[in-house]
Nucleic acid binder design. Structure first.
Lengths: 225, 225
DNA sequence: AGGTCATATGACCAGCAGGTCACATTATAG
DNA sequence: CTATAATGTGACCTGCTGGTCATATGACCT
């Protein structure tokens, strides 16, 4: 966590620093990020930087709390259109609303997903607990869905979590990577074509998870050697 | 591509260099790999390194051709157990046999997938053509599957490629990451539990892609706002 | 023997990294 | 106005990076 001096700063200055950090992490990831460049681009001195933060990971930690705040703020006045959604409808709504957020903050999203899911996969357990936490929420959702008979009980929960996580990340990465090439990313995301693509993707996932156990068993027998 | 001098080297020496490079890239990726460390660990001098390679990317290029050779060698005497498999059975066989290979060369696999799929997603188009090439093969496979009526025609081909690629990578990453924690990775991969997990994952994918168009449409209507 | 050519070496270079610190500036309090 | 505490600064440090190059070694040929 950043030191107190950082939070004493005028908002404008803080935002400039955060913005420079977002740019840096989005372009270079965490390991290759340069404190010197962050310092240059935020118009503060090297000494000040170390008066605000422990090191660059500390800056990244702050970005995590920034995105958390912005996300709760964004979701505050967003509500599912229909109160009686099943789990998959709810997941679909979550993904799509999440994509709206990502599109609104593409660099912030890129910075965080790059560090957490690309670098973090390999250089280890620094953010493992963080990923665990988000997995727990998904897990609960799936357990509920099973109770409601929406998810095939032969699909074990860990697996379903992995599947939904994988797709959530894949779609997010796809949106950011492809979207950055468009001139108007927001328009592109909301276009019928893009929405249809996401829809179809989620349906493929949904149908996979929905299938009944009997189908799974008969299919499993097919390829047993 | 490495220079001629490299290929003139005695095999033993070459292997030591390749091995050091694999270790380095597996642990640090491409951008953070250190030529100095590679040089130290392979017992050659700095000057020799630059007589063999242009730079570290050149070394990585060589690793790509190494894995290609090893893979064709590995697959040479592997044949699908049943000549009359459908596309999904074939894909499943490919994935599983591929996992055997990955397990046999975990560091090489980690080095390459880390650079191509984790770093490569962000710092751009250096290896884009390479990923394209492997996507083309998948694409052809899926088109054939559609002709045979095995894949739902409402699933567009690009999407199916993305889905199969995503899973192929996700499973590979899962095997490497989890497998590295085991004392006997080969035993772990071949265990009934791990195999079942992969099986279930692939079935979820398969069922998603297999569903008929009519199912998709009726399901799509369900959530149309 | 002398000569030639591929190979091997490590000291050396400039550049940038993360991080420190003595000092300058500004704000607050008495 | 003075004393004190908080904040700001950039020159400077060490360590590592990718990369070069003059020089040394030794295999092969005539």
């Amino acid at each position: 966590m950043p030191k107190q001096t950082f939070f004493n700063l005028p908002e404008e200055k803080r935002e400039k620093i955060v913005s420079a950090a977002v740019d840096e992490f989005a372009e270079y990831g965490l390991e290759n990020a340069s404190t010197n460049r962050i310092v240059e681009n935020s118009g503060i001195s090297k000494g000040s930087f170390y008066q605000y933060f422990e090191d660059k990971q500390d800056v990244f930690m702050h970005l995590l709390s920034v995105i958390e705040l912005e996300k709760t703020d964004f979701f505050k006045d967003k509500h599912p259109p229909n109160g009686n959604m099943d789990t998959f409808q709810y997941f679909r709504w979550m993904i799509k609303t999440g994509m709206e957020f990502n599109t609104k903050h593409p660099l912030l999203t890129q910075a965080i997903s790059r560090v957490l899911f690309a670098e973090g996969m390999y250089y280890g357990h620094t953010f493992a607990d963080l990923r665990d936490r988000s997995a727990k929420a998904l897990r609960y959702m799936i357990e509920q869905a099973m109770k409601n008979g929406e998810v095939d009980p032969s699909v074990d929960v860990d697996l379903a979590v992995m599947i939904m996580e994988t797709w959530s990340n894949a779609i997010s990465a796809y949106i950011i990577n492809e979207g950055m090439k468009q001139k108007d990313i927001m328009k592109w995301v909301r276009s019928a074509k893009t929405q249809e693509k996401i829809d179809k993707l989620l349906y493929v996932m949904e149908y996979g998870l929905r299938k009944t156990e009997s189908q799974f068993v008969s299919s499993a027998e097919r390829t047993t050697k």
